[in-house]
Design a protein around this nucleic acid. Structure first.
Length: 134
DNA sequence: GCCAACGTTGGC
DNA sequence: GCCAACGTTGGC
């Protein structure tokens, strides 16, 4: 199972919006690399929800409820159905992530404009250990 | 509000 | 098909 990070501007759609709704369809991803990643999402994959803009932090965890598929209205668009799993007790900020030398190569740090990216096992375990020490 | 980094567009 | 110019995004 692959893990992912999706970015979203919280004033457009926040983790709390997702929690309130119970599920949503992730869509509107246009960047070619982001789309390529999005297309690889499988049912059950865990996805971190990152807030851009003022917050710049991972705020919650979601899970894909179905594998990625094409938008029925637009063959070229990719959509993923997701549901909330849990909200983090406290956000994991970009500033904190940048303090980890081992996370310096992660797309989140290197490619600010990428809105969908994979998380490797090693990266995931580092993130988890940061969360647990808090 | 600025800038860096990346994408896209359009002229050749 | 290349590449310069421009636009967009997101962090600072």
């Amino acid at each position: 199972m692959v893990k992912w990070l999706f970015k979203q501007e919280p004033s457009d759609y926040s983790y709390d919006d997702l929690a309130a709704e119970g599920k949503t369809i992730w869509e509107g991803v246009n960047n070619p690399l982001a789309k390529q990643y999005l297309r690889q999402v499988q049912s059950g994959d865990q996805i971190l929800f990152y807030h851009t803009g003022k917050e710049k932090a991972i705020v919650g965890i979601m899970a894909a409820t179905e594998a990625a598929k094409s938008d029925p209205n637009d063959e070229k668009a990719v959509i993923v159905s997701v549901k909330p799993v849990e909200k983090l007790k406290q956000p994991l900020t970009l500033a904190r992530i940048k303090q980890e030398p081992k996370l310096a190569n992660w797309e989140l740090v290197r490619l600010a404009r990428l809105s969908v990216m994979p998380i490797t096992k090693e990266q995931w375990s580092i993130l988890k250990s940061i969360l647990e020490e808090a």
